[in-house]
Nucleic acid binder design. Sequence first.
DNA 1: CGGTGAAATGTTAGCGCTCACAATGAGCCA
DNA 2: TGGCTCATTGTGAGCGCTAACATTTCACCG
Lengths: 337, 337
Amino acid sequence: MPARRSSPSMADVAAHVGVSHQTVSRVLNKSPLVRPETRERVEQAMKELGYRRNSAARALVTNRSARLGMVSAHLALHGPSRIAASVDAAAREVGYDVSLVGLETVSPSTVRVAVERLLDQAVEAVLVAAAHRPAIEAARAMDLPVPLVLVQGVEPGDHLAVGIDQVAGARAAVGHLLDLGHRRVAHVAGPLDWAEAVQRREGWLAAHRERDLEPGPELAGDWSAAGGHAAGALLAAGDDVTAVFAANDATAMGLLKALHDAGLSLPDDLSVVGFDDSPEAAYTWPALTTVAQRFSELGERAVGLALQAIEGGTGRPPTPVPLLVPHLVVRDSAARA
Amino acid sequence: MPARRSSPSMADVAAHVGVSHQTVSRVLNKSPLVRPETRERVEQAMKELGYRRNSAARALVTNRSARLGMVSAHLALHGPSRIAASVDAAAREVGYDVSLVGLETVSPSTVRVAVERLLDQAVEAVLVAAAHRPAIEAARAMDLPVPLVLVQGVEPGDHLAVGIDQVAGARAAVGHLLDLGHRRVAHVAGPLDWAEAVQRREGWLAAHRERDLEPGPELAGDWSAAGGHAAGALLAAGDDVTAVFAANDATAMGLLKALHDAGLSLPDDLSVVGFDDSPEAAYTWPALTTVAQRFSELGERAVGLALQAIEGGTGRPPTPVPLLVPHLVVRDSAARA
DNA sequence: CGGTGAAATGTTAGCGCTCACAATGAGCCA
DNA sequence: TGGCTCATTGTGAGCGCTAACATTTCACCG
């Protein structure tokens, strides 16, 4: 038995059957111009030889890579990894492969490098999931030869972007608290160079504004439970706050922890609402009332947009996709004032 | 200004400078056989024209793709996404790109399809992060033209695999409980077709065996907080259990929740230990004692192994990498019996 | 000042595939 | 029978690059 040389080519398959390489190509590309019997024999030969089409050669001649690039910040966090998973699934569905570049730190320069890297792989579109606004702007400013789709950190003016309506989600969360009779709601914010953090904060303000109420104190957070814990310690020591809106569930968990540590009884002494509906949210103590986002739909839409942009070339911009609306999930961590 | 045609090729750059395309190639490949001044001019031209090397053409002629494939199950879970992130970073470090295929459901057939997909992308190695053992076996049985590296679900006999010593981690966790004076420790297991689940269970048994103690009751779980919650309800209703080892942190969180719901006081009435050291573990109530794994090192090692295997070709198998040893993180959820 | 070897550059031939077009053959009608 | 059409298959070129080899340039020596 001869050692397995380099993998067989179309020519090998063709020779094996006694047809031309073009006929093999036709079979592969499902051309109707092949006699069923011939097709049969070619397919048989491909199986026997273990033929696998050479994607590089194909990409070279067609000038298309069938590849989408995704740069994802904070792949280890819940939201981003959900988005990555859904983009991957959606892309595969429509015959695209995906190249992933994770970011260890997010900044204009790291995002630029990541995008460059994807371009070197000849991706047909770049999806950026990095809510950090300066980084997004940097990517936008790059004058790319392919469409760039935003999957996070979207702002109203953005084109070629899919996102979740953070303001609406936050407004619903805070509104819920206010409707429960709380006169003011404190906010532990996310890092304010993230679009999401700004928007959730905006929703918090809006909910108060709509009811002619003064928003409660605002504390800084960083998406993490640690940040939430620190903020919670401050809050527990503080004054008359009866309700808190945390920028995300991790923050809310830290908050809960700090309040317990301070000996408060929840939710009677203090109501807490989070954002994300992470898998653990239903199992905090007390169970977290939060805002659920449909990440999987995000991925699908982003891929759809990318495809549309690829097809459309430099044509008219694709129809803008409305923001997805998240919904409130009421559990036990928020109670009547 | 002419519309941007298809992107410039080496020939374009060469013509622009007045050299041959081969000289451009030499510059690109850092050959020392280029006069510094020539190199300078070529680089200048590349910048001006926005030249970008065509990776397909390069892959075609070199017969190498500089691409690693990774199939990852449960990308949305904490561990897997951490692994994916670290593999990605490590691969990039050594000049490889990574193609990701996420699995929505894990089974022999879905894994096979995923691997096929990666092979069609001409990856130079496949990393499989899918602890589900039957799926792993299926991938192993495929007789691939490229190395396959296991990143999860590793068992002692496995070759070309990196993993974390789950048995040791579990033994440490349960040993900690036993050393605290508990006479027996209950276990809420993971799904037992996952190697990790089996191994953690084995560590639980081993810790008892070493001390000549009878293991406490065993309950079924599924890695999720929901599963832990169900098990916790049973446990709370039950007999004389004073300590529980949960298969992972999510399970432990569900457990904690159920015990609180049952009105128990933790950790006095019942001690709980988890596994994973997820970011939230420090902020449960009480803070979770758990086992920390260094995922990032996992990715690095996996990529290292893959590279070694790619280089080595069919040569002698690479030196086996010892399992990483996780360590116990003591917090508040486990107390003296 | 011709010869020499190393440094620098050029030339040519594909890699495996798709595209455009050419060629073959069978069926059919006048 | 000749010619026409359609279905099927074949041929040739070339995508952008690298590898192997060929050629030119040039500093330096006897």
